[in-house]
Design a protein around this nucleic acid. Structure first.
Lengths: 213, 213, 213, 213
DNA sequence: AATGAATGAGGGTTCATTCAT
DNA sequence: CATGAATGAACCCTCATTCAT
């Protein structure tokens, strides 16, 4: 910790961080393109232009990069989602929801590769890393369920099973994301509106359907 | 074609069919539990209690069982889905939709293993067999989109992008299925009602949300 | 052994012999076409149009058919080769040699498949059956060596190492056979003359070569 | 290309070449002893004392080592064979022929393993690699046939079918090689003389045989 | 720190042989 | 006798991970 060593150490630390980032980037592309199992360490190190052994200096193994990659990417995504503020002075919940959606959709379209990966990882036992993803989905589901509960108490949301509906709404969003990553020039704003419209009012024209459903 | 030969040949054919079904069943569980790549032929033959070579008597290889399994299971599932009849004498579309849903949900709960597998297979590049699954999801999406288009023309459905909404609705259903397969004692009827309610009317209480969304 | 059983037993024995012959024939073609290792029992039983188990009623296994097949075919070939009679009243040895050659060449051209097989079997360790073939080649070599020794004592053959020359002459014949089985319309008589000319007088024009060789 | 890097890189390349050679040597022995099909990669790696994966670092597979081994060994052998110069100032053709023979025989005795392999590979359909060997034998046959044609025009060789005689002479040599590899202390010079004597003048004592043959 | 040659467990597949019907 | 479904040892190959340099 002598002052003399700091500049060198700093530089080394920066280099190390860059390398790590480069490997993660290479891994992200590789896993997205080929799936966890079909992706080989070979693919990753070739893309990252490092030697085989170097890889293991930065990560404990295949599973470890995958986890790191997930953790980082999920954190970025999570940062785009904001809890809806239902306080007295808050802006309309619909607007807040819309902003979160627009941020998420924008991020998704900039990270199609990772999004595809994330979508395929839902419930996937194939991958030893399900936990990280499960935790993310559970987190989001809980967030939605909590919002629903809140809305319910405030009379904004009609009576329903929050758990079930949260699972459904998250599914809706995943469905839309799956559609988006294969649709080059999507209009995010319009899509956000469709999601909100669909979620809040459904697709039925009021009065044209029986009351039973 | 002599009548005398039939009994033996019949019995043999039945036995063969049973074996095949047993292998498919073992494969279904194995693939569902461990994913396509982590599942080994070893796992399958151990579960099916057959010798290694026997497996290859019934299927050309790992990929072939997987495809057969998918094809058969998807066919069963597809058989539960009926196109909605919008003719003048038809029963209310909501009722028809509800029946399809109940059939599908019931089937799903009886085949949790396969359902889990099917859900993980969505968009999966990891699996050499994506085509079969993609075709199924495309088929269902098209079915939904067509229904939406129809409903739109009849004034039952409010203006929307049928492709996008179809992707969303299929996502909603997948979300619910994912929830169900981990919920032991689900009440199918109620779930069907929730899905329909959500799809047609959303979760918002009319009048409590701004008109923009 | 009652007299009544004989006709039946005879018929059965004849049938059995026919089947056996059919299997050997199928095996001969298969082994000739694909080589010992690449030939599968499957190939043989399909060609012979018998069931898998039936094959093992007639032969102990793959190796056993191969040995039987070799033994029978080699016996047929060997029957075409006659020891040269050098007695006082015998016909000219060259004529005798020529007759053996013509018989062998004719047989070879009628059994190209087997000949090819036989040629590839020389020295072949690949095949667990080398013994049978080795014995045949040893037999023929010994025959030639003995003839050479005889001829030597009678002053018909110039001084040489009979073992070495026998190996060489057998090689010459194998070389010719290899050429013949790929030459559809060979004139056996002419070929026999070439072999004898080559063996007895070589290809050199006397007086045009130095004496050293 | 900096001079500093050379020593390391050189050493690495040399090591690599040694390993490769060691594997080829192990393969040569294994294939010679057990034949192509009976030889397993296991045999090879055990003999070469390397791990399974290491083998695949140097060769693409079983067939690839076999082809490399053949190509290298055939090239060495071919290098010992020189075309006979029949020009006006050339040394006597017989002497030239004799030198090629001595070189080839010497090489053969130093590489009994490979020679045995080469001999068994003639016409072998069993082996996926027949082409390389066929090409070699065709090459040598063509060389002999061309020499015969030349000698014929110069009046050194008596009238004959060059193709047939070339096949025969190559057969003669193969026959001798087969004899040699099982004869420990052969006198190469004497064997070369026997081959030449046999080829040019045959084994008959002139005047003691009828003219017909 | 970086390298890349070496490792070996593990996977999918084939095929000669057996045995209950 | 004949059948053909069943068996399992053996084989080739891949790839995540280690370690000497």
């Amino acid at each position: 910790m002598s002052a003399e060593e700091t500049p060198e150490a700093d530089r080394a630390a920066r280099m190390r961080e860059q390398r790590r980032a480069a490997i993660i980037a290479a891994a992200r592309q590789t896993f997205a393109e080929r799936g966890y199992h079909n992706a080989s360490i070979n693919d990753v190190i070739e893309r990252a232009k490092i030697a085989r052994g170097t890889f293991y200096l930065y990560f404990e193994g295949k599973r470890a990069v995958f986890e790191s990659l997930l953790a980082e990417s999920l954190a970025e995504l999570r940062a785009r989602i904001r809890r809806i503020d239902l306080g007295p002075d808050a802006r309309p919940p619909e607007a807040q929801l819309r902003e979160s959606l627009v941020r998420v959709l924008g991020h998704v379209l900039e990270n199609r590769d990772f999004t595809r990966l994330l979508l395929t990882l839902w419930l996937n036992p194939d991958v030893e890393v399900a936990d990280t993803v499960d935790a993310f989905y559970d987190h989001v589901t809980a967030l939605i369920a909590a919002s629903l509960g809140h809305g319910l108490r405030l009379g904004l949301v009609r009576p329903c099973d929050p758990q079930l509906v949260a699972a459904a709404l998250l599914g809706t969003i995943r469905g839309i994301l799956g559609y988006l990553i294969e649709t080059p020039d999507a209009d995010i704003e319009r899509v956000a509106d469709e999601i909100i419209g669909l979620s809040l009012r459904g697709i039925g024209v009021p009065g044209r359907w029986t009351a039973s459903g």
